Amino acid sequence: MFVDPEKTRDISDLVYSRQPLLISQTAAWRSIQVAHYLHPPWETPQYFALAHLIQVHLGKPVNMLLNLSGNCHDLQLTAGDISIYTAGSLIQSRWDQVAEFINLYIHPDFFQRLSAASLSPDQARLLQKPQVRDPLIQQIGQVLKTELETNGLMNRFYAESLATALVAHLLRRYMLLPPTLRQHGDGLPEYCLQQVMDHVHAHLAEDLSLDELAAIAQISPYYFARLFKQSIGVSPHQYVIQRRIERAKQLLQDDQIAIADVALQCGFPSHSHFTKLFQHQTGMTPKRYRHDHKALGDGVLSRRLPESEFDHRISF
Rank of each mutant, 00 (worst) to 15 (best):
I84F: 01
E147N: 15
Y222C: 11
Q242P: 00
W95V: 02
M1S: 14
L21D: 11
H199W: 14
G59F: 06
V56M: 01
A215L: 05
R30M: 00
A163T: 06
Q46H: 08
Q33W: 01
I314Y: 12
E212D: 14
P269K: 13
Y158G: 04
L90F: 05
P121G: 05
G283W: 03
L21I: 12
K145C: 12
F268M: 03
R9P: 00
A49R: 12
H293L: 11
L210C: 12
I245K: 10
P221I: 10
S220K: 05
S31H: 10
L166D: 01
K60T: 13
K60M: 11
H271N: 06
C266D: 11
R30K: 10
L14E: 06
H39K: 04
I245T: 15
M197D: 13
A79C: 13
F228Y: 14
P178W: 08
Q128H: 14
Q242T: 11
A258S: 08
C266T: 15
M1T: 14
R303F: 11
F268Y: 12
Q97E: 14
R18Y: 00
G70A: 07
F310H: 08
L251S: 05
C72M: 10
F224C: 07
G187M: 02
L58V: 09
Y223I: 00
D298N: 13
S89M: 00
V98C: 14
G267T: 10
L181H: 08
V300W: 03
H291D: 04
Q128Y: 07
D96E: 13
A225F: 02
H293I: 01
Q138F: 11
K129V: 06
M64F: 00
L227C: 13
R18G: 01
L75K: 06
Y174A: 01
Q218V: 09
L162H: 03
H271W: 03
A99Q: 13
K249W: 05
A124M: 04
V300N: 04
T164E: 10
Q250P: 00
A215P: 02
A168G: 15
S220D: 15
L119S: 14
D10V: 07
N155C: 07
D292Q: 12
G80C: 09
K294H: 12
L296R: 14
D198K: 10
F2M: 04
A168E: 14
A295N: 08
L21R: 11
S161F: 03
A215C: 03
E190K: 15
A202W: 05
L210D: 11
I106G: 03
